[in-house]
Amino acid sequence: MRYGTTASACAAVIRRDLLLTWRRRGDALNPALFAIMVVVMFPLALGPEPNQLANVSVGIVFVAVLLAGLLALDNLFRGDHEDGTLEQVVLSPHPLSLLLGSKILVHWLSTALPLIVISPALAEMLHLPRSVMPVLIVALILATLLLSLLGAVCVALTIGMRRSGMLLALLVLPLYVPVLIFAAGACNAAQMGLPFLAPLLWLGAALALALVLAPLACAAALRISIT
């Protein structure tokens, strides 16, 4: 990889963010711990009856993952904005959308991927049938990638504001609801023995669109928020 190219710049961003994540690995595990606590609370509130838990297990897992992701979303660009790194990224001669896409990828790897890894254990705690596990994993991968991209745009819009947590939640949640509906709908259909491919295809189509448009929108929002 040649020095000074866009590919080398993106690789440098990924290496830097992964190193920072490793140094703050305790903070990176907070979303996973939060999701575990949320899932554990539901059997205590609803009771240990397996059939009752199985009927709501998909919704519980997705709500836990959504809330855990929302918990870590504000940190996507906040640290870089506070130490001045984000301004240097914006002023870089390389395409800003690709550099931000690299940062979003690292954020997904450090926050969503651990949630996906522990999701079979969470689903097992809620007595979700094992035949539904593959659909759950695929739906979580598509949904979390899409949520990270949509959330990054909202974070970029509010990065210049202090104490923007409530505003960020108000911006993000309406965008998250359709993703939650399609992802949970695919798993519920698989659990009932119905066709489940259509919701996954809709999620895949939305993800393909977001992969192209979200980094561009994020770059434009950052330029507006910083300048």
Rank of each mutant, 00 (worst) to 15 (best):
V179M: 05
A143Y: 04
A32S: 13
P199S: 12
V135R: 00
S225V: 07
N188F: 07
I14Y: 06
N55E: 15
L115A: 08
L173N: 10
T158P: 00
V90R: 05
A35Q: 01
L140I: 02
M41I: 13
L136D: 04
P93A: 04
T111R: 08
L170D: 10
L147N: 13
A72G: 07
P174C: 12
L73F: 05
V179A: 05
D17K: 05
V65F: 01
A32M: 11
H127S: 14
L29T: 11
A7H: 08
D83G: 05
S225I: 13
H107C: 04
L211I: 12
G79H: 13
T158F: 02
I116R: 04
V172G: 01
L201G: 02
I116Q: 09
G26F: 07
H94N: 09
L209K: 02
T158D: 01
K103T: 07
L67E: 10
R163V: 06
L98V: 10
A190M: 09
A143V: 01
L140K: 02
A189P: 00
H94A: 11
A54W: 02
L70A: 14
I137A: 05
L70N: 14
N51Y: 07
F196S: 08
L100I: 15
L149W: 07
P93V: 10
L29W: 07
C10V: 11
P31W: 01
P199C: 11
S119K: 08
W202D: 09
L100Y: 03
W22L: 13
I36D: 11
V135Q: 00
A45C: 02
F77L: 15
M1Y: 06
S131I: 06
T5L: 03
Q52S: 13
F182K: 06
V56C: 03
G47E: 11
